[in-house]
Design a binder for these strands. Structure first.
Lengths: 157, 157
DNA sequence: CTGCTTGCAAAGTGTTTGCAGGCCC
DNA sequence: GGGCCTGCAAACACTTTGCAAGCAG
């Protein structure tokens, strides 16, 4: 495994933000950031715990949960609710340059559990409508949209 | 037990459907149906447990969960995922006459937890789009849309 | 040094399961 | 009666909390 440096641009930016907020940069937090930076898939808290343990020796479950909460409050990490039950986390790229990696929408099949990614603009219209009609600021990527995927529809639909 | 209005049209219809499927009509199931029929709010499993206990003496937690699962499989009860964590249940009116009470969309504020109801057609366009582009059959009411409500936006946003 | 963070373990939620007995049909 | 349904308790997965010790700043 090319243990790519923790010096990833994203991690570096995250650390910078932590410092600017006078938040401590600890091994546990670095491990969590590193884990999230290293994958493009969505990891559950438990997955983060497991992978973080590979990076830092004794990161405890509770510590990871606390780190995820803290980083979440700082806006460095965001979570998505899949299936209405599972919560998965991902890094919200804080790179000044990067054009704000707009989170895509998640479509989850209630039959097979598969998660499809739809472009962010899929919900733009809805977002504007909710804004106008209800003054409700929709967070498009915060929860997955549930339904049945194509394969499952033909299987027994 | 002389219970008020268990003779609700909806409960009666539900019972009829249970019988037609050769499913047993038990006190516990009747209690669950009665509880759900009696309110228009969305109840969590635990709420159903509590209220069901008032109707039937010793309905156990596990029994309520099993009843909700069974009734769900039969299409008599549906659940919605709020906030991505809480699951709430409601009766899906099986009355032949009723024009299929299409469930409305739920908008939940991640700050104050309030749940707003938006008309079902709010997501019609999105639904069609997902259908065409991904062959994904969206279930509009299955999970709440998360975001920030008007009051909370002005409060600190 | 100061006190935010961590580790650990235990307590909490919310939901599910194995069994023996009970009740619907 | 037969077999599904229930009650009970324990198992479960996930997340949170109380403390004392540890380390960042």
């Amino acid at each position: 495994m090319s243990q790519q440096t923790d010096g990833s641009a994203r991690v570096a930016a995250a650390v910078a933000l932590l410092r600017s907020r006078h938040e401590r940069v600890t091994p546990a937090r670095l491990a969590v950031l590193g884990v999230l930076d290293r994958t493009d898939e969505h990891l559950g808290a438990e997955d983060v715990v497991t992978r973080a343990a590979e990076r830092a020796p004794h990161v405890h479950r509770a510590t990871v949960y606390r780190a995820l909460a803290t980083l979440g409050d700082l806006g460095l990490v965001a979570h998505i609710h899949l299936g209405g039950t599972a919560t998965v986390y991902h890094l919200t790229v804080p790179e000044p340059a990067a054009g704000d990696a707009r989170p895509h929408v998640h479509l989850q099949c209630t039959r097979c559990g598969t998660v499809l990614d739809a472009p962010a603009d899929t919900m733009t219209a809805l977002q504007q409508r909710l804004e106008e009609e209800f003054r409700f600021r929709l967070d498009p990527g915060h929860s997955a949209l549930l339904g049945v995927c194509a394969p499952c529809r033909s299987t027994a639909g």
